[in-house]
Computed example of a mutant assay.
Amino acid sequence: MKKAERVDYILQRLQQLYPETPVPLDHTDAFTLLVAVLLSAQCTDERVNQVTPALFALADNPVDMAALDVEQIRAIIRPCGLSPQKSKAIKRLSEILLEEHGGEVPANMEALERLPGVGHKTASVVMSQAFGVPAFPVDTHIHRLAQRWGLTSGKNVVQTERDLKRLFPEAYWNRLHLQIIFYGREFCTARGCDGRVCEICRTCYPERKHPKRTLKA
């Protein structure tokens, strides 16, 4: 199967499996999504969704969040891991939103990436899911599947993002990154598939004899 054929097949199959792509992190607006995505670093979405109700009950906007003490935030988000860094980032980004953006989350990639604790992937998720701006957030999860499916030979998520954006039409980016995540969690996990087990891997590479080793993300 040639690369163009793999791209067409993957698009069609993922659309069949996941016609709806709800954002897995519970949120009510751009600010709560931003905080939830920040908390999801090295943490499962399920755990984040268990933690955020208590946090957002105290502060679901920059004004109230900036008024909280860092230790108050940290006590709530501790189960998510990296709580010292994340609590400081959440408080400070809330202050910056008030100081520089009128209390609103900016719909601008560069402005988002300047916020504490907000990297390119987090900014991409907010741009795509909160503002509907085409973006293709790539984490190690998507990086691994893209390599198994022969969509990239990138050694890092930056190159993989570039390759996926080149292969897939922009209109598909926002839902496709979620569809890939959903499929990976269900069928093509890190331990459950080595590039020869799941349906998409077997269809894309029916003759593959050896496990597909993922280049470092």
Rank of each mutant, 00 (worst) to 15 (best):
D29N: 14
A30G: 05
A30V: 05
A30I: 03
F31T: 10
T32L: 08
T32C: 07
T32E: 06
L33A: 09
A36R: 05
V37F: 12
L38G: 11
L39Y: 02
L39Q: 05
S40L: 06
A41L: 06
A41V: 08
C43L: 05
T44E: 08
D45A: 08
D45L: 08
E46P: 00
E46L: 11
E46T: 13
E46W: 02
R47W: 03
N49M: 08
V51G: 13
T52D: 01
T52H: 01
P53A: 09
A54L: 13
A54D: 14
L55F: 08
L55Q: 07
L55R: 06
A57W: 00
A57I: 01
L58F: 02
L58G: 05
L58M: 14
A59N: 06
A59W: 04
D60Q: 12
P62S: 10
V63H: 15
M65S: 03
A66H: 05
A66N: 07
A66I: 01
L68E: 05
L68H: 05
L68Q: 05
D69L: 11
V70R: 13
V70S: 11
R74I: 01
R74S: 15
A75Q: 13
A75M: 04
A75R: 12
I76D: 01
R78L: 14
P79T: 12
P79L: 12
G81D: 11
G81T: 09
S83R: 00
Q85D: 12
Q85N: 15
Q85C: 10
Q85P: 01
A89E: 00
A89N: 14
A89G: 10
K91C: 04
K91I: 09
R92H: 14
R92W: 00
R92T: 13
R92C: 00
L93V: 10
S94R: 03
E95D: 11
E95I: 05
E95R: 11
E95W: 04
I96Y: 06
I96C: 04
L97N: 04
L98D: 11
L98M: 14
E99V: 01
E100P: 00
E100T: 03
H101A: 09
G103V: 07
G103L: 09
E104H: 14
V105M: 12
V105L: 12
P106N: 12
N108V: 04
N108C: 15
E110Y: 00
E110L: 08
E110K: 12
E110H: 05
E110G: 03
A111K: 15
A111I: 00
L112R: 07
E113C: 13
E113S: 00
L115C: 10
P116D: 09
P116A: 10
V118D: 02
V118W: 04
H120G: 13
H120R: 15
K121I: 10
K121G: 11
A123Y: 08
